[in-house]
Nucleic acid binder design. Structure first.
Lengths: 73, 73
DNA sequence: ATGATACGCAACCATGAGGTTGCATGTCAA
DNA sequence: TTGACATGCAACCTCATGGTTGCGTATCAT
């Protein structure tokens, strides 16, 4: 998921699901993926925004940068 | 654990256990911690070396750097 | 207006993660 | 040499993780 987000940091839930299935050959359902997204959202790594029919997911790498600043040198 | 390693990247299993219990108030046994270390070792984040009675743990942040280079811009 | 679509919600399930306990073993200090 | 100490090994237990299924709902295109 993060690999995918690092390429395009703005995606639809549906897009992301499709991409993961096709490009990484993972067998996962939309609902299962939504749970992962919820966790990332609670961690501040992803924010989501309702755009009509779609749910836009926006990746935010700040929390990762913060932890890495602590851990790497 | 990684917080602790980022301060002193070389520690004994026993030391690490004691530090985690005292400084972070986590209630964890040595055996439980050893399992975590084994996982970090398989992931290449920690290498261990037998020094007589002790098991020296050495932290290696290269794998983290590699992933972060992919994920952070 | 209606069907297709993208999503949310909730119940349910199996497995493994994460922990404990008990004991064996090698090493060091006295 | 012997006891204390740091660790290894393995069996065992308990939930929460990570998944599924089923269905309801809002939005869009036609």
């Amino acid at each position: 998921m993060l690999d995918e987000f690092s390429e395009r940091n703005e995606q639809t839930l549906y897009e992301l699901t499709a991409r993961l299935i096709m490009r990484y050959e993972v067998a996962i359902s939309r609902q299962a993926l939504a749970k992962h997204i919820d966790i990332l959202e609670r961690a501040g790594l992803v924010s989501s925004e309702k755009r009509g029919k779609y749910r836009m997911l926006v990746f935010n790498d700040e929390p990762l940068r913060a932890v890495m600043d602590r851990w790497l040198k």
